[in-house]
């Protein structure tokens, strides 16, 4: 699908955010179309996470401007939303249950693809932080939402995992989806990366 075809999945206009008397960004306008990959960059405290939460619709007050969401979206934030008392299979089944009914085989398959084969039935509190993140990322294999908002998805992920994640994002974009990702590292992907730089003096 050609980049930019049709109505945008998400349209942000004139976003302006002030935190603690400091202006993080102002007059930020962009459209996210199918087939686009956006990377939000900026120093710590530049407002990357705040921007992602505004785009996801979790932040509804405290900023100016408007965000129009025209498609279902998937938001993965800093927190893994993994319950220590539940097994990875139960966690994942619960995470995806809002958007669709998946069979146990689908769930196990997704867990296997993020390298958690054999860990399906152990309590999640015995797993490492990186494995928690992987349970979370397994949602990407089950998600039908065209727009992904990934806030620091590479945190605690090993090098192999980063490569797989980049491959998934590339495939999603090539398949007509869109991805917005915040990360400090350069993405190794086979598609155009649009950069959204937040910093002193507003977005560029």
């Amino acid at each position: 699908m050609p980049s930019g075809a049709g109505a945008p999945l998400l349209a942000a206009s004139d976003l302006c955010l002030v935190r603690g008397g400091r202006e993080l960004f102002r007059d930020l306008s962009f459209d996210i179309h199918r087939g686009q990959l956006w990377q939000v960059e900026g120093a710590n405290g530049a407002g990357k996470t705040s921007l992602m939460r505004i785009l996801a619709g979790l932040s509804r007050y405290g900023f100016d401007g408007r965000v129009q969401r025209r498609a279902p979206l998937l938001y993965l934030g800093h927190h893994s939303a993994v319950k220590g008392l539940l097994t990875p299979r139960e966690n994942l089944a619960w995470h995806v249950s809002g958007a669709g009914d998946w069979s146990d085989a689908d769930i196990d398959d997704a867990l296997a693809r993020v390298g958690l084969c054999g860990y399906e039935d152990v309590a999640s509190h015995t797993l490492s932080a990186g494995q928690h993140r992987r349970v979370n990322l397994a949602r990407l294999y089950l998600c039908r939402a065209p727009l992904w908002l990934l806030d620091e998805p590479f945190t605690a992920i090993d090098r192999g995992g980063v490569g797989e994640l980049e491959a998934v994002m590339t495939a999603h974009v090539a398949g007509g989806g869109a991805v917005v990702v915040t990360s400090h590292q350069a993405l190794q992907v086979d598609c155009e990366v649009r950069s959204l730089r937040l910093g002193a003096g507003g977005a560029q």
Partner: peptide, 17 residues
Amino acid sequence: RGDFDDGSLEQLLLAPQ
């Protein structure tokens, strides 16, 4: 509280339900 701390609540709010 638990679901707030670990981010599950965010996902509940975003779920299309």
